[in-house]
Amino acid sequence: MRKILVGVKRVVDYNVRVRVKPDGSGVATDGVKMSVNPFDEIALEEALRLRERGEASEVVAVSIGPDDAQQQLRTALAMGADRAILVKTDRTLEPLTAAQALLAVVRKENPDIVIVGKQAIDDDAAQTGPMLAALWDRPQATFCSKLQIKGGTAVIVREVDAGLETIEVDLPAVISADLRLNEPRYVKLPDIMKAKKKPLDVIELATLGVSTDAGLKTVLTEAPKPRSKGIIVKDVGELLDALRKRGLVS
């Protein structure tokens, strides 16, 4: 039966308005609520649904990050993942390094499908899925909004700029989840208790033989320039006048 590997990244919760540190060294994360990357939740939900439909037998959640990322893996286990793996590192990794680390896990686990979020909402890079697929020399189906498994292949509807594209890939493959693939379930209290007993393995990144130098470094983090405050107009006439003054409407 099929095994599915799901990427689970620990990120600043999407409701938090991030603040840039005054010294420009990054964004403040001390005492800030951390969560599972929302797109990874969607990825996990899809994997769980495949298992519940009998199209997969095991769902393994994998995170790469600090020891605290075990919290997000416990959330994944509470949602329904069978077991979890943390590739432990205290460094902030480039997606290339994350993809190399995931490849090392893939080589050990031999999954039929890897599902990740289409992007993480911290670095917004949207690279790890396609990079893993390239290094693994397997198909990729990014921005997936519908997934169907048919034997040794998967049919994927992708949300692209022009509309909806359907592609077919041979398994194993890497799929990246888009917003409208599904709506992730809520975790129930008994499931949180059960999740505590599920296996969670910790591997040190250093033992995977992956170089952490991707050749890219962040030298400065700044707040964006704010837009200047506008005005409230009182009615449609005033709005049209203002727009005409700027030459925006005739």
Binding site: D123, D124, G215, L216, V219, T221, E222, A223
Partner: peptide
């Protein structure tokens, strides 16, 4: 941009790659 444009980073890439 990172964090949906709420922060802007300057990144430097290795010039030999």
């Amino acid at each position: 941009p990172i964090y949906a444009g709420n922060a802007i980073v300057t990144v430097e890439a290795a010039s030999d790659r």
